[in-house]
């Protein structure tokens, strides 16, 4: 039991460190929000479809904007550690790879959740979609999507961090792996907009939960290998 508290303490210390760093530097979150907003606006402007048709396709656009905006903090959570040898110092601490992975996952999950909180109301304003009326189902969908993207993104971000052209690689490596999540989230949004929160919506949530669990488990088991040099 003491070991669990010990690891939890380490985990919380690392999450707090990342949150404090972001609070002080404000390096990732403003860029993330701006990129997400610009993408959403650009897509909506270009589409300019009738309301009924827009609701069918715009769900995918929302999650695509969240994905591209979310890639900023995912990449930043590792690249910022490179300054002044922070990453080497962090690896010298007696922290297990799994704890480090879960801490980075938590930071990325919080970042993506904040981005969803910014973009969802914006999406509702732009498309007049009645998503906020069904806020419990919408929140659950957003949380599961953010968890799925953060679970795969944290592992890919760590891989890309050790390479020379990491800036482009995060998106290039993560997008193929995250496509089922984006497909699931956009279809679940379309179900919500049709007012269908039954069987099909539940299936998509199950898929997102399975994706999060599989990638979280893979991250916990494989992160030590990613850290090796």
């Amino acid at each position: 039991m003491n070991a669990v508290y010990f690891h939890l303490g380490q985990w919380w210390f690392l999450v707090r460190k990342d949150l404090q760093r972001e609070y002080r530097s404000r390096a990732a979150w403003p860029s993330m929000a701006l990129l997400g907003l610009l993408m959403l606006m650009a897509i909506e402007m270009q589409l300019d479809l009738p309301a009924a048709l827009s609701r069918q396709v715009a769900g995918g656009m929302l999650w695509l904007a969240i994905f591209f905006g979310g890639a900023v903090p995912i990449e930043r959570s590792f690249s910022s550690e490179q300054a002044d040898g922070c990453w080497d110092a962090l690896r010298m601490y007696p922290v297990e790879g799994a704890t480090l992975y879960l801490a980075k996952f938590a930071f990325n999950f919080i970042s993506l959740a904040i981005l969803s909180c910014v973009l969802l109301p914006m999406y509702v304003v732009l498309t007049d979609a009645p998503l906020l009326k069904q806020w419990p189902a919408t929140s659950l969908l957003a949380m599961l999507t953010c968890a799925s993207l953060a679970a795969a993104g944290t592992l890919v971000g760590a891989i890309a961090n050790s390479l020379r052209s990491r800036g482009n690689l995060v998106v290039l490596l993560l997008l193929p792996l995250a496509l089922p999540v984006l497909l699931g989230a956009s279809d679940a949004t379309a179900s919500l907009l049709r007012g269908d929160t039954g069987d099909m919506f539940g299936r998509w949530l199950q898929l997102l939960a399975a994706f999060s669990l599989i990638n979280l488990t893979a991250g916990v088991l494989l992160f030590d290998f990613v850290l090796e040099r």
């Binding site: 795969a152 592992l155 890919v156 891989i159 050790s162 390479l163 490596l173 193929p176 792996l177 496509l179 089922p180 497909l183 699931g184 279809d187 099909m200 299936r203 998509w204 898929l207 399975a210 994706f211 599989i214 990638n215 893979a218 494989l222 290998f225 990613v226 090796e228």
Partner: peptide, 23 residues
């Protein structure tokens, strides 16, 4: 080492991709 990790994650995602698209 890094490609081994990506291949494992890619293979783990195959059932999810299959489910996502079959639905």
């Amino acid at each position: 080492r890094v490609c081994a990790i990506l291949a494992i994650v890619g293979a783990l995602d195959i059932p999810i991709i299959t489910m996502a698209t079959r639905w």
